[in-house]
Structure formats: C-alpha cells, structure tokens
C-alpha cells in the first residue's frame, strides 16, 4: 500500500470523525430523530398494573438479554423481564401500585441499544 494513499485514507478518516463526533454528541444530548419516532409510536401516558409484551427490534445476541434486564429493572414498578429473542418480545409485569411511563420504558429499551416498536397489553 502506497504511503501517500495510506496518509490520505488516514486524514479522511480523521476528518470524518472530527465532523461526526461533535455533531453526534450534540444529537445524543438532545434527542435523536429515531428516539422521537419510537416515542411517538409508543405513545404517552403510563402503564397500569398488569402484564405487557414489548415488541423490540435488534436483540441479536444472548448478551442483549442482560442489557434489557439491566435497563428495565431501573424503572420503578417493572418486574423481572422475560425475553423471547426469536420473536423479539420482552414480557414485563407492572406491579400493583406502580405507574411507569411509556416513555420511560421506551427510553430504557433505547438505552439498552435496541428499538421498541410497540407495547401490547396482555389480557388477564
């Protein structure tokens, strides 16, 4: 590989990175468009006590289960999540006396690194 080619590739990579980093940092601190779209699809308000299926995209490995567990358990009132990776469904229970917001659930899934597309209430 020619030295000049290598240097040019390196400089291009650095330039792209320097442009992307501050732009991306700003967007992560506000609210990225995908997050807004996800929140809009999930709706606002709170979840009443009961069972729910969260339809999630992008859970591609066993470690994803740990990430989802970790983030959902941070929400007050959300019980032990059960992940069905094949169908992309995370089953949760909202405990009596709790009312976690839909936005908090969507944020937790997004923070875990995945995309929440729907919250389905499971009939009792």
């Amino acid at each position: 590989m020619q030295a000049s080619t290598l240097r040019a590739c390196g400089l291009a990579t650095v330039a792209l990175t320097l442009v992307a980093l501050p732009t991306g940092c700003a967007s992560t601190q506000t609210a990225p468009s995908d997050r807004n779209a996800s929140l809009a699809a999930i709706g606002d308000g709170t979840l009443a006590p009961g069972r729910y299926d969260l339809v999630v995209r992008g859970m591609s490995c066993p470690k994803c289960i740990s990430n989802v567990d970790l983030q959902l358990k941070r929400i007050d009132g959300v019980g032990e999540p059960k992940v069905d990776m094949k169908n992309g469904v995370v089953a949760i229970t909202v405990r009596d006396g709790s009312a976690p917001s839909r936005a908090a659930v969507a944020t937790a899934i997004s923070d875990a690194g995945f995309t929440l597309t729907e919250i389905r209430e499971v009939p009792r």
Partner: peptide, 21 residues
C-alpha cells in the same frame, strides 16, 4: 466512540456504525 448509525431491522437483524478517536 460515537455510534452514528443504529438501524434495527427486525427482531434479530441490525446494522450499526461508529466513529472513534
């Protein structure tokens, strides 16, 4: 490291890209 792309296509499939310095 900054993730600049996260495209979750279905239950399993995903495409992600990051830049780092």
């Amino acid at each position: 490291e900054l993730r600049v792309l996260r495209e979750d296509l279905n239950a399993i499939d995903t495409v992600r890209a990051s830049v780092f310095a």
